[in-house]
Design a protein around this nucleic acid. Structure first.
Length: 335
DNA sequence: GTTGAGCGTT
């Protein structure tokens, strides 16, 4: 008594689509997902109780209610039943695509069943959009899956959608995330934050905010204390920030230089702490800053594997403070 | 021949 098709819709009132069933009368969730990407189940309104009922789902297989599928309209379930939110995510990513700075990246797929193959992955993820790479990571010797893999899509909106939900793959819930190795290495090029060098002490955060407002919405101004002759200004739009980089602007009669803010993980203080232990040299550095001798700190940051204090003495005695302060302070990002 | 939080032999 195999039923050929069941009627499925995203909403009770929308026009249903006919979805083929299997020979044994079940319906594969993957078949539903092929028409409704991201679907994780089905529900229907019981003619008797008038309540919504869930369709039994076992390992990717949807089982008919007691009296068969009948002529009911089955409504697609999405994770968290939050289709609207996913649409919003799509919309926001669409606006970003207009700016043309959205590149896809590999996504790690966690929680794969041991037996899931590359082909299985490709079949599943192709229901969301064009797939250009799938990998299942395996033990080199045995060839057995390690239970995770990678996937890459052609379109960024596909990637966004895939990341926004959980995935039922071969009977297990899986998560797709940006892998740790891609946790923001390409951020500095499109940072919303700029470094403002050659600031003077009479420039207040409010002065800077007022000034930079003319270029776009300013979301943050940071001026280190004690005074260190630079500041950070963050814009709402990264394009505004990038457009200003390299400019020399006049604020309160002083020429300040705008450049890219180094990402925080390049923070020289953090690097110093990582290299020499937490805080050991920091008190001296702060003292030097106050005495206009910040040279050693910056140079040590750019020299790998040489003890900090050697550079301190070298630059302190041989340059005698004649290196441009803004060149040095450029690397002195703060918390 | 088992397992179930994580992070990619190039």
């Amino acid at each position: 008594m195999a039923e050929l098709y069941i009627r499925v819709a995203e909403d009770e009132n929308e026009e249903p689509m006919e979805i083929p069933s299997e020979d044994d009368g079940t319906v594969l969730l993957s078949t539903v997902a092929a028409q409704f990407p991201g679907a994780c189940g089905l529900r229907f309104r019981s003619p008797i109780s008038q309540c919504m009922r869930g369709v039994r789902l076992v390992e990717g297989i949807l089982h008919a209610p007691e009296n068969g599928w009948g002529n009911l309209v089955y409504v697609v379930n999405y994770p968290k039943d939050n289709k609207r939110k996913m649409d919003e995510i799509d919309a926001s990513s669409a606006t970003k695509i207009k700016r043309g700075d959205q590149k896809t990246s590999d996504l790690i797929v966690l929680g794969l069943p041991w037996k899931t193959s590359e082909q299985d992955l490709k079949d599943y993820f192709s229901t969301f959009g064009e797939v250009i790479m799938v990998q299942v990571k395996r033990d080199v010797k045995t060839g057995h899956s390690k239970g995770f893999g990678f996937v890459r899509f052609t379109d960024y909106e596909t990637q966004t959608k895939v990341m926004s939900q959980r995935h039922m793959i071969d009977g297990r819930w899986c998560d797709c995330k940006l892998p740790n190795s891609k946790a923001g290495p390409d951020e500095p090029m499109r940072s919303r934050k700029v470094f403002v060098g050659r600031c003077t002490e009479d420039m207040t955060a409010d002065d800077l905010r007022q000034f930079f407002m003319q270029y776009g919405e300013v979301t943050d101004v940071f001026i280190p204390k004690p005074f260190r002759a630079f500041a950070f200004v963050t814009f709402a739009d990264d394009q505004v920030a990038q457009a200003l980089c390299g400019e020399d602007l006049i604020i309160k009669g002083v020429s300040v230089h705008i450049s890219n803010a180094e990402p925080k993980h390049n923070n020289s203080r953090q690097m110093m702490e990582r290299r020499f232990g937490n805080g050991y040299h920091l008190p001296r550095v702060y003292m030097l800053c106050q005495h206009r001798s910040t040279l050693s700190f910056a140079c040590a940051d750019k020299t790998v594997g040489v003890p900090f204090f050697i550079h301190f003495f070298f630059f302190f005695f041989f340059t005698n403070g004649k290196i441009c302060a803004s060149d040095i302070l450029r690397t002195l990002e703060c918390d």
